[in-house]
């Protein structure tokens, strides 16, 4: 095994993996992180800590990861090309690996224009493919990006990438997955899936190329807990494929609580369908600051207890 990653262990033994996201706080307090880590511990194999998600300032991913590790949960650090050049990224990779982070998600990063500091200078010294390659080279060749050898212990990280299976055209999205696998991705976590039929088509193309054998595909799940959120995601978020029947289901409820229940039900049904798709290695649950929903969904989808 290349790493001490619990996520890698679960995937290696062929178990359906569960990861979930913990939102970093917009302050210096560890208490909510600790609370959320303990809330989802035992329900997930590893947790993700986004890094400046949506280009909004919050506690750095690596710090949230360290809190999680201390509480005994395997962590997936996020690193983006948006805020750091190749020097800063490599320094952080050495640091997080030294402190026991076993997994990394390599991202280009949400555009700064979306965030709360839109006048910031973007970096983009690397793109996500180049970042994946760099982490792989550090790990497998024990070489820095400039080719110099690492003397001593190299960072041993299980390498992840993000993927949007709703990107068009479908063939291009599959090719992009292939590029990420070639670059060195061990696993991918996808954007939330709502259109299961569309995702099945994408997975068919993925299997045709045999890519599901080269990379562990972890499908994204985000429960939509209100009609307004569903409408917003359908119309305002680019490349979010929300079928009308989901909107209809959220329309046919009597109140807020019922809408939330319906959203969770849809998420659970989607997970159950995902389990049936050949090549789907697990699910990644993103609840957008509602971490209390994670154990609920895991229980309802019979993902608990974890091996």
């Amino acid at each position: 095994m290349k790493t001490k990653s619990n996520l890698a262990r679960i995937l290696d033994i062929g178990q359906f993996a569960v990861t979930a996201e913990i939102s970093p706080p917009q302050n210096t307090q560890f208490d909510t992180i600790k609370k959320n880590v303990n809330l989802i511990k035992g329900y997930v194999d590893a947790f993700n800590a986004p890094d400046g998600q949506a280009a909004v300032v919050a506690m750095a991913s690596w710090a949230v990861c360290l809190v999680g590790i201390e509480e005994g949960l395997d962590a997936i650090v996020h690193m983006t090309c948006r805020d750091q050049n190749r020097i800063a990224l490599q320094m952080d990779i050495l640091a997080v690996s030294a402190f026991g982070v076993n997994n990394i998600l390599c991202l280009s990063g949400d555009p700064i224009y979306f965030g709360n500091h839109p006048k910031t200078k973007p970096v983009f010294d690397l793109d996500s493919l180049q970042l994946i390659r760099m982490v792989k080279q550090l790990r497998d060749e024990k070489k820095f990006d400039n080719g110099e050898l690492i003397v001593g212990t190299e960072p041993r990280l299980f390498i992840g990438a993000a993927m949007n299976p709703s990107a068009q055209p479908l063939e291009a999205a599959v090719n992009h997955l292939k590029d990420k696998v070639t670059a060195g991705a061990d696993f991918v976590q996808t954007q939330p899936i709502y259109n299961i039929e569309g995702f099945k088509k994408w997975m068919e193309l993925v299997r045709e190329k045999g890519l599901h054998k080269d990379v562990k595909i972890i499908a994204g799940i985000t429960p939509i807990t209100s009609l307004a959120a569903a409408r917003y995601m359908k119309t305002k978020v680019p490349n979010m494929d929300i079928p009308d029947r989901i909107i209809e289901r959220l329309k046919n409820v009597r109140n807020k609580d019922e809408a939330a229940e319906e959203g969770i039900k849809i998420a659970v049904e989607t997970i159950n369908q995902l389990k049936q798709i050949e090549g789907v290695a697990g699910v990644h649950i993103m609840t957008l600051q509602r971490e209390e929903l994670i154990p609920k969904i895991c229980n309802a989808a019979s993902l608990y207890p974890r091996p």
């Binding site: 280009s108 793109d127 996500s128 493919l129 949007n164 990107a167 291009a172 992009h176 490349n239």
Partner: peptide
Amino acid sequence: LNGPCGGT
């Protein structure tokens, strides 16, 4: 340099 991203 190795685009596109997932945001097209």
